[in-house]
Simulated scan of single mutants.
Amino acid sequence: MTTPNPANLSIGPASIVTCHIDITLSDGSAAESTRVHNKPARITMGDSSVSPAFEAQLLGKVAGDKLNFTLAPEDAYGQPNPDNIYYLDRSKFSSDSPAEVGMIIGFTMPDGSELPGLIREVAGQSVTVDFNHPLAGQTLTFQLEILEVQ
């Protein structure tokens, strides 16, 4: 019996995929890239960490493949959810992390995890914090280079 050659292993429903991902907005500007710090992404197929539409693009691909595809907001990071926008009192912010429009601040959740929030508006003592993913609502183009398939 021969052992399968990992270089020829194609991506299936339970594969672990290591890849570089470059994401661009519909205007062509760069949104995100794993190449910036040379830290490839690791995707476990079927664990819901990426959308079914994203996974569908990977199925059958092998290490060395390069692909380019565009996803609508619903198939990428979804549409912004108004329930993810909160209004907090300015006193909740410290001098170490002041409430300034455009800043992304990590908020500690009850379970101890941290959730990033984008400061959208500061009006008097009210601070508007958006916990939607920054790329929610965007049509995105993904360029992937598959480095390894397990």
Rank of each mutant, 00 (worst) to 15 (best):
P98W: 11
I21N: 01
P110W: 11
L140K: 03
T139G: 01
N68W: 08
L67V: 14
G78P: 07
R42M: 09
P82I: 08
Y87M: 12
M45G: 00
N68D: 11
P82Y: 02
A63K: 02
F93R: 00
Y87S: 12
S97T: 14
E114H: 13
G28F: 10
Y87G: 07
G106W: 14
V17T: 04
D96N: 15
Y77S: 08
K92W: 06
L58T: 00
S95Q: 15
I146F: 01
E145Q: 08
L67N: 13
D47A: 01
I104L: 00
V101Q: 15
A123I: 10
N132S: 08
Q57H: 11
V101M: 08
P4T: 11
A56Q: 11
P40E: 03
V101P: 02
V17C: 02
G46N: 06
T70K: 04
A41I: 05
L58G: 03
A56Y: 10
G106D: 09
V149L: 06
S126D: 06
L25D: 14
F142M: 08
T18W: 13
T108I: 08
V149R: 07
V36C: 11
Q79S: 06
S10C: 06
R120D: 14
I16F: 06
D75M: 09
S26K: 04
K39N: 15
V129N: 00
T141D: 10
E121M: 00
S95A: 13
N8I: 10
H133A: 10
G46M: 09
P116H: 01
S97V: 14
L67W: 14
K39D: 15
N84E: 11
G137F: 00
F131I: 02
D83E: 08
E148K: 13
N132T: 06
A7H: 11
V50N: 00
E55T: 01
A41T: 09
L140S: 09
Y87R: 14
S113L: 03
P98K: 04
H37D: 15
L59S: 04
S26R: 07
F69Q: 11
S48C: 09
E114Y: 12
L144R: 02
A41V: 06
G28R: 01
M103N: 15
I146A: 07
I104E: 04
A30D: 15
L144N: 09
P40G: 10
A56K: 03
N84W: 15
I43Y: 01
I104S: 04
V36L: 14
Q138L: 04
F142I: 03
E145M: 03
S26E: 09
T24H: 13
Y77H: 13
F131T: 02
L88C: 07
T24L: 03
E121Q: 05
G60P: 06
F131E: 03
F131K: 10
S94D: 01
T128K: 14
Q79R: 15
T44L: 09
G12L: 00
I11E: 02
T24K: 12
R120T: 13
S126A: 12
P73Y: 07
E55A: 08
T128Y: 01
S15T: 11
S10K: 14
T18S: 12
E145L: 13
P40H: 00
A136C: 07
D89Q: 13
E32L: 15
P13D: 15
D27C: 05
A72I: 07
Q150N: 13
D75T: 00
S33Q: 09
A41S: 15
I119G: 03
I23S: 05
P134H: 12
R120E: 05
L67H: 14
L118K: 05
V50C: 09
V50P: 07
I23Q: 10
